[in-house]
Design a protein around this nucleic acid. Structure first.
Lengths: 220, 220
DNA sequence: GACAGATTGTCAGGCTGATGTCAGCTTGGT
DNA sequence: ACCAAGCTGACATCAGCCTGACAATCTGTC
């Protein structure tokens, strides 16, 4: 689960990225529109959080540019309080949702989850697969209804699996989704993480497909 | 527990906000309808106290505007004595209760508590979770039935926990709920507060989830 | 208004759990 | 049998958290 945060205010950028990371997301940051414009793999992101009040080149231009290039990534815009015009133009330019500054993190998180639910065409807040259920909003997961005691990274990994139960997920994909660009990590980190998660949800729950990746088993 | 106070009279605003803060509420203040209209997260407030006698743009308009936008926050209006018309129109426009100036603080407090009891759809005045019980109206809390000796901030924190027992509450959320916007506080203040509360209700009652927040345990 | 006591933020230092890394082992495929 | 890929126990590191001590502030009382 990676998001790109485009925000010029260093302090806000720091705070938001820390909290987003805190709920298990991998966060890439861009400090201005120019940097963001040619960001690699924007369309691979789970979402983009875009501040419209950027100094250089309007955030709106960036937004329009992306959409013109066919980039369909969910975009959530930030606007200053009372900037109704920005909001309306932003939504017209192809933003998916907006949020008013000052940002309450819980609201941001809720709107991100709403975007993903919408995007994934799911209506349920709680994702389930086999014996496992994940509640992204409450940051909890259960096995056969019993609360699991997972660390942040373990939760993020399980969340990733549950979003595509039964699908093969490559190690490299896990690396990309769980770590930001500036964190260089070994594949072995993923193996260790999988190992720890297996210890908690059962060895058989996650099947290894040599050379391909992992798969969350849906049939107990 | 945050409230928004919309009041143009600086003296009354000061006095009320101080007393509200005095009973452990975080108070945000707006001096006129324009400021209040686009207040961020009005709907996250526990209540709004709205003076109908505002100079710019009528308070009634503000009220109607909010309700039209689907903002369901409990609103308590202040009116000058004898302004029956205001009262009636206010309640018709979607206010939840009114109070006549000059304001007796005890009455204000009582009406706020009544609003919350109603709003929460709870019939009980007392909220309980595990061995802990909190009575917001009486500003008291008990552990296994024995009265706890809590300071205001400790009480406010416990109240916050008890309203969502078993849920994870982030440090930042505690910061937002216990302190008004203009009070910059360190996360360590929260840690210290949690530490003090734990000393009184038991170390195990509040579980730490590293990187996520705290959780009030419901099972002893 | 001055004092005592309580409250609460701040600081510093210590503790702990989460997580990456390593090394040696196991497994599966050819 | 061999080798590459994956697994996992052990360990190190460090961010996040705890808490005692202190200081500043608030509260109530005389």
């Amino acid at each position: 689960m990676r998001v790109l945060l485009v925000e010029d205010d260093a302090e806000l950028r720091r705070r938001l990225s820390e909290r987003l990371a805190g709920v298990g997301l991998a966060v890439d940051c861009a400090a201005n529109a120019a940097d963001a414009r040619d960001w690699p793999d924007v369309d691979q992101m789970a979402a983009v959080i875009l501040d419209l009040g950027l100094p250089d080149g309007d955030g709106l231009d960036l937004l329009r540019d992306w959409r013109r290039r066919g980039i369909l990534v969910p975009i959530l815009i930030l606007t200053a309080r009372g900037n109704w015009r920005d909001k309306v133009e932003g939504l017209n330019a192809g933003a998916d949702d907006f949020i008013v500054k000052p940002v309450r993190f819980e609201e941001l998180q809720a709107r991100l989850h709403a975007l993903w639910r919408r995007g994934a065409g799911r209506s349920a807040t709680v994702l389930t697969a086999g014996r496992v259920a994940v509640d992204p909003a409450a940051q909890t997961a259960t096995l056969d209804g019993a609360l699991l005691d997972l660390s942040r990274k373990e939760f993020a990994l399980l969340h990733l699996f549950v979003r595509r139960p039964g699908h093969i997920i490559a190690q490299d994909e896990i690396l990309e989704q769980l770590y930001a660009l500036d964190e260089e990590r070994d594949r072995n980190a993923v193996e260790a993480l999988v190992s720890r998660l297996r210890r908690k949800i059962g060895r058989e729950a996650i099947r290894t497909l040599r050379g391909l990746g992992y798969r969350l088993e849906v049939t107990p």
